[in-house]
């Protein structure tokens, strides 16, 4: 039975959520032009959790903007096999005039859902991030961690009927049929204190498993990347290129259980590589 359980995730990871081929992004023109990304090849499988790691200036956020379709690449191809990806930023950026539930409803409203449907989906999503009874609170009445959870629920809602939860109304979605959803996260926990961040990382993993969404998670924290990601991708800085990838499934699981020699090794290895990348800029 363990075997049958292990198979579906493998099968779905055959198809990809998003593929980047030779993506380049240059800002400005002429001698003042800055190349943020140069020849980035990256593939995120359906339902896969990938962490993008890099020092400042490596174009992590630029890459996310390109995938989110908020910006266009200068060269290369981005092929998404998902609907519009959900995006989560470092700030919760909730609309201060809307209640938590209305914030979650906003993308559904923009998608043209009826009021009653919106309420049901928003309620389910708030339950998912464990804010069930707090839908009528305003953002200023919530703590930073709670706001970030509302933002997560809103992001999932914006993935529309692909979020896995939204399909609950339709119910016809078979295991093989639905297009994979994609969640893009730009250092979403960077502004939180350590304990809140720890809790939210666990929450995110739980939500990810519950919704089977592909996640592209940008961070500069090696430990966070190893704990969350199935795969960690290291980007170089100015211009951003993929330096190396690590399979961190085992290390991440070890980190959660606390039996962490292997995890410590992986973190050490990635950190030293990151240091190399950074110090190469001092020489140049």
């Amino acid at each position: 039975m363990t075997a049958t359980l292990a198979v579906p995730p493998l099968a779905t990871s055959q198809d990809s959520a998003v593929e980047l081929v030779g993506v380049r992004k240059t800002f400005g023109r002429g001698p003042a032009a800055v190349t943020a990304l140069d020849g980035v090849d990256l593939r995120v499988g359906a339902g896969e959790f990938v962490c993008l790691l890099g020092a400042s200036g490596c174009g992590k956020s630029t890459l996310l903007n390109l995938v989110a379709d908020l910006d266009q690449p200068s060269a290369g191809r981005i092929v998404r096999h998902t609907a519009r990806p959900a995006v989560m930023f470092q700030e919760a950026a909730l609309m201060p005039w809307l209640t938590a539930a209305r914030n979650v409803e906003l993308p559904l409203r923009l998608a043209g859902l009826r009021r009653s449907e919106r309420r049901v989906v928003a309620g389910e999503l708030l339950e998912l991030v464990r804010l069930g009874g707090l839908g009528d609170k305003r953002p200023h009445e919530l703590s930073g961690g709670m706001r970030q959870r509302v933002a997560l629920a809103r992001a999932l809602a914006s993935a529309g009927d692909l979020s896995g939860v939204g399909a609950g109304a339709g119910a016809g979605a078979g295991a093989a049929a639905p297009a994979p959803a994609l969640l893009l996260m730009d250092e979403p926990f960077a502004a939180l204190d350590a304990i809140t961040r720890d809790v939210l990382q666990a929450e995110l993993l739980r939500v990810w498993r519950a919704t089977n969404t592909a996640v592209l998670f940008v961070t500069h924290d090696v430990r966070e990347a190893v704990r969350l990601g199935q795969r960690v991708v290291l980007l170089s800085s100015r211009p951003g290129r993929v330096v190396r990838e690590w399979d961190t499934r085992q290390a991440g699981a070890d980190l959660v259980t606390g039996s962490g020699e292997h995890a410590a090794e992986v973190i050490e290895e990635i950190t030293s590589r990151l240091r190399e990348v950074i110090s190469s800029h001092a020489a140049a």
Binding site: P8, E124, E127, L128, R130, G164, V165, A167, G168, A171, A173, G174, A175, R206, V207, R209, A210, T211, N212
Partner: peptide, 15 residues
Amino acid sequence: PGSTASEVELGRSTP
């Protein structure tokens, strides 16, 4: 299998 709503149910009841 494949019923997404109950997947959520599971996710919620886990903790």
